[in-house]
Simulated assay, not measured.
Amino acid sequence: MAWRYALTIDPVVSDDTRDDFADTFTVIDPAAPALSVGELSTQRGDGIFESIGVIDGHPQEVSAHLERLAHSARLCDLPAPHTGQWRQAVEVAAANCELGEYVIKLILSRGVEHCPAPTAWVTAAPAADFAESRTRGIRVVTLDRGFDSAAAARAPWLLLGAKTLSYAVNMAAIREAKRRGADDALFISSDGIVLEAPTASVILRIDGTYITPAPTGQILHGTTQLSAFEWLRSRGLATEYREVPASDLLKTDAAWLVSSIRLAAPITAIDAVPLANDVEFTAALNAYLLSPRD
């Protein structure tokens, strides 16, 4: 990824009355080395992040992303990110994005080992081209996540509901999916409950209702899924959050993986079982997701 813009943030803000945080930002060369060798984000993946889509200079769903960043910080015992400071950082980064699709990444790390202060930075880069995934669709395979559906409540230290930098397992799952002849994976709990994809939420259409797994702490609550459900309801279509047994995948007549950068990718096969691609509906959903949204 060719980074176009980067800045670091002083994440320790004690004055809640201020409304300008420009003096807490430092613009850095995105191509130059910037992190200490003792940085815990690189040593241990000890940090959190968000990826915000940018369409023609407009950052999408910023409030939802900042709310999830704060949620991840609570789960990981990191300092609470100052919403106003991070929002301004997003605005500054977006102002340096050109026309087209970009991605802004927000990163909050525990910092350098044995130092008390966290580190934080924001980057902007052109987004990958997902046009083919959005139109022709993707094939997925189901993979056992290795935890049962009650794991998050029983073992909160697993951080299953946080968007952490520890993405080695997620990337390994995608590689395994490709070894099996698919494009992506769909995690299933060890007791047979549909969860999420490694980097996306899943939406299933069953008997005319658009269903996504309930955000019980076992999965990330997807910002794009939230936006898609708003659009669906505005069109008078039924939506539902619920526990989805893996057997319901056989009842699905259409399905999508949705995320901030890829947007809506129709699933054309699950475990090599073909699934219809509702081309017209998917095009309308992606047109909405490509429109400016706050």
Rank of each mutant, 00 (worst) to 15 (best):
N96Q: 15
P215G: 00
E98Y: 06
R44K: 11
T268M: 00
G208W: 00
T83P: 10
A93Y: 06
A185F: 00
A287I: 06
S109K: 02
E61K: 04
R87S: 10
L263V: 10
P59Q: 07
P59W: 08
G192N: 09
P126R: 01
G222S: 08
H82D: 15
E101C: 15
L75Y: 14
D23M: 10
G45M: 10
A95R: 13
A73Y: 04
I206L: 06
P79Q: 13
T26G: 11
C97F: 15
P213A: 06
D248C: 08
L99C: 12
L263T: 08
G161F: 04
L7Y: 02
C97P: 13
A95N: 11
A120W: 10
L204H: 08
D20T: 14
S14D: 05
Q60F: 06
A94Y: 12
L69N: 15
E67A: 15
D271C: 00
Y288D: 02
Q43E: 13
E98D: 07
E132H: 12
E39Q: 10
W3Y: 05
A214K: 13
R68M: 03
V103R: 03
H71I: 14
A124I: 10
A264E: 03
L78P: 13
E39K: 07
V103E: 05
T142I: 00
I9S: 07
A214D: 04
A32I: 12
A246P: 05
I203K: 02
G38C: 03
P245E: 01
P198K: 00
V202G: 04
T142K: 02
F147G: 06
A214I: 12
A283N: 05
C115W: 15
A173Q: 05
C76D: 15
A89D: 11
A32S: 12
T24M: 13
A254Y: 01
R179S: 09
I188H: 07
F25D: 09
R44S: 10
L195Q: 13
G192K: 13
S189L: 04
L7K: 03
D184A: 00
F21Y: 00
S227A: 14
Q218H: 12
D20A: 10
A264W: 00
L159S: 04
I219A: 07
N277R: 10
A64Y: 08
I270Q: 03
S72M: 07
P118M: 14
P213Q: 07
I267F: 00
I28F: 07
W256K: 00
